[in-house]
Nucleic acid binder design. Structure first.
Lengths: 176, 176
DNA sequence: CTGTTGCCGTAATACTATAACATTTTGGAA
DNA sequence: TTCCAAAATGTTATAGTATTACGGCAACAG
C-alpha cells in the first residue's frame, strides 16, 4: 500500500488503513520532533481521522465521554492545539471543525476544498501558482505573510454526479 | 474626493469621509437592487465602518445598547445577514468579525490581508492570477467552486516599520 | 530522590450564533 | 383610504464554540 492521497476517496475505500497510516505517520513525526504523542493525543487524532470529514471539537468530546474517558472541553481543545502545532491536524475556519493532515511534514501552503453536499474536505498541497499569486499581492502592498486560510466551498465530483444522476451514486459506492 | 481604496490607510486620514462615502455607496446600491436600507441596517453598517477594522457582532450590539436602542443578538445578526447578502459587509472567518466592503458591486473574488499587530484588514479585489490558480486546482479534481474564503495573516507595512523602528511610528501618525 | 516541567482533570465562565414566536412597520391592492 | 400580506424588528430562550484558572499527577533531568 503506497498511501497516495485520494482527495475525495470513494465510499468503499479501506478507511481503517487510512487511519492506521495517519497514526503511523504521526508517531514517527512526533519522535523526530521530540514531541510527546500521548495516549489522549493519539486517540483524538484517531477520532479526527475516523470520520474522514471535518469534526467539531464537541463531537470529539462526546465520543471520548462515551468511551468512559473523563473529559471536558479543555481536554479536547488541548489535544487539538498540540496536534495543530505539530501540523497533524488543520482547523477549518468556515466550519469550526478539524481534519487530519495527510502530510504533516510538507511545507503547508495548503488549501481546502469543502463539499457543501457531503461535507467532506480535501486538502490540496503546495500549489506554486497559488502561492505566487498570493505572495505577489502581498508584496505589492508591503505586507509580510505569516499564515493563510484558503477554503473553497463547492461540490465534489461525486456529489456533482449524484445530483446530475442520482441512480449512479449507489453504483459507485459498491465499485469505487 | 475620488475615494480610491487605500488598503491600509494612515492613522491620520479623514475617516469620517470614508464612512460617509461607504454609506452613500450602500444607499445607491440598495436603491438599484430594490433592497430596503432601513435605519437599523444603515446604523449597523455605519458602526462596522467606523472602526475601520473588523468588528465583532457583540461589539456592535453593545454600541447599539449604549445608544438606547433595544437590541438583542438577533437584531445585529439580522442586520449583518442583510448587509452580507447585499455584499456591503464581509465576514472574516478567522476572526468571527465583520468588515465593510468598499466595492459592493464588484465581482468579489476577493481576499483579505489581516494584520496580526494592529488588527486591520485589507480587502484585495479581483486578482486574476489567484482566481486562475484556484480554478485550475479545483478543475483538476472535478470540483465546482461556489464560494471561497481567503484570509492571510501577517504584518501590514505600517506595523513592519513600527517593529523595525518604533520611533518612526508617531511621526507617520501626524504626517500620514 | 527531588525538583521542575509538562500533561491532564475539573469547574466555571466567556464568547458567538440561532431558534421560535410576538409585534410593528411597510408597501401595495382593493 | 382601508386593509391585507410581507417584511422587518422586538423579545426570550437556548445552542454551539472556546477559554480561564487552578490543582493534582506523572515524566524526566539533575
Amino acid at each position: 500500500m503506497h498511501h497516495d492521497i485520494d482527495h475525495f476517496p470513494p465510499p468503499a475505500h479501506d478507511h481503517d488503513d487510512c487511519v492506521r497510516n495517519a497514526l503511523d505517520v504521526a508517531t514517527s513525526h512526533c519522535e523526530r520532533h521530540g514531541a510527546r504523542f500521548t495516549a489522549l493525543r493519539r486517540r483524538v487524532l484517531e477520532l479526527v481521522w475516523t470520520s474522514h470529514e471535518p469534526v467539531g471539537a464537541y463531537a470529539l468530546l462526546d465520543t471520548l465521554k462515551t468511551e468512559g474517558h473523563a473529559a471536558a472541553p479543555p481536554t479536547v481543545y488541548r489535544a487539538l492545539d498540540f496536534l495543530i502545532d505539530q501540523g497533524l491536524v488543520h482547523r477549518l475556519e468556515r466550519l469550526n471543525a478539524f481534519v487530519g493532515c495527510p502530510r504533516p511534514d510538507s511545507s503547508h501552503s495548503a488549501h481546502f476544498l469543502i463539499c457543501t453536499d457531503c461535507g467532506r474536505a480535501a486538502e490540496m498541497l503546495d500549489d506554486p501558482a497559488l502561492d505566487n499569486a498570493l505572495q505577489k499581492a502581498a508584496d505589492a502592498l508591503g505586507f509580510s505573510v505569516s499564515r493563510r486560510t484558503i477554503e473553497v466551498e463547492g461540490l465534489c465530483p461525486d456529489c456533482r454526479r449524484k445530483i446530475a444522476d442520482p441512480k449512479f451514486d449507489a453504483e459507485r459506492a459498491l465499485n469505487g
